[in-house]
Design a binder for these strands. Structure first.
Ligand SMILES: [Mn+2]
Ligand SMILES: [Mn+2]
Ligand SMILES: [Zn+2]
Ligand SMILES: [Zn+2]
Lengths: 158, 158
DNA sequence: CCTGAAACTGAGACGCAATCTCAACCATGC
DNA sequence: GCATGGTTGAGATTGCGTCTCAGTTTCAGG
């Protein structure tokens, strides 16, 4: 699953965010910057509680209101997007190469997948329906190998 | 978009539901039957408020609690499923041929689509990841022809 | 038919993620 | 300085969905 290393994107993410804020007449505050840094210093998938906890740990706490507001800005700016849904909190992820998700409904594990073929067919479908696609979410819910194995074992040997 | 006429499924839906209830030691009450009938007397896509309103109109009101509980049972029994997401209420639909959705983010219009090709690739992906698929949601968000046209017109002639 | 155990219903309380409110707080330019 | 206008955060609010529990209904067994 190749993607630009976090370090390499770091400066440009800050720069891009600064641009976006300037363009909208908004201010580049320490809180906003810290949310951005916290997000990009972590693994690509996260929920708001992760950010809250991490910022507290860093000694730079911010209120949920501010974090939610910043998440909206970052999503609007195309730096993050909503990823997996249906596990309580909304989960976000860094935007990089497009991909979709397998979600294990038992243990919550997430696996990413990409299919150029599917993307192509989607475009075809949209063309056929005269529909302008803006985004899509394609999520397969099921059981990962481990959870399926556990279930099968339990069923055969009660 | 061919599907079995409602009338033809009607009796069997009631019978299937009765079976399901019996199998689980649950009771076949008037309220549950009325929820079932209301659902299958309507267009395939609906939200709970539609059911609440329709049952009131019919002079057979039921509480939200009961309706939610019955929806769960029907979903569990494979007669309905969650359909489009991201419009406030959870939307359900009758289960018939499998299909996915285009959602116009501007006017809320929903278009259905099917692609045997995509389904096949999905299976392939699951096999490759040793993942047991149980369900999937594939939703393309964008602008329907009408909303796109309106937007384009407004942009060119302010 | 009774009758009792078990399930059901509905009004309203509750849970909870997400959003909103608003007073105090900057940051900036004049 | 100080006025302007965005920002923050504590806490209130919203709204879908779930849960509680007292009174009701179902239904199998007698
Ligand atoms: Mn991902
Ligand atoms: Mn549909
Ligand atoms: Zn799992
Ligand atoms: Zn539209």
């Amino acid at each position: 699953m190749p993607h630009t290393p976090i370090a390499a994107r770091f400066a440009s993410a800050e720069a891009a965010f600064a641009d976006q804020l300037r363009a909208k007449g908004l201010k580049n505050t320490p809180e906003r910057l810290e949310v951005l840094r916290t997000i990009f210093s972590r693994h690509a998938h996260f929920a708001i509680e992760d950010i809250v906890a991490e910022m507290r740990r860093r000694g730079r706490p911010a209120s949920r209101a501010t974090i939610y507001r910043t998440l909206s800005l970052l999503a609007e700016g195309g730096m993050i997007r909503e990823a997996v849904r249906g596990n309580g909190y909304t989960h976000y992820e860094h935007v990089r190469e497009h991909h979709d998700h397998l979600l294990c409904v038992h243990c919550g594990a997430v696996v990413e997948f990409v299919s150029a073929e599917i993307e192509r067919i989607q475009d075809e479908i949209c063309r056929r329906h005269v529909f302008t696609p803006l985004s899509h979410s394609h999520q397969i819910n099921g059981l990962c190998a481990r959870c399926e194995g556990r279930r099968a074992r339990k069923a055969s040997r009660p």
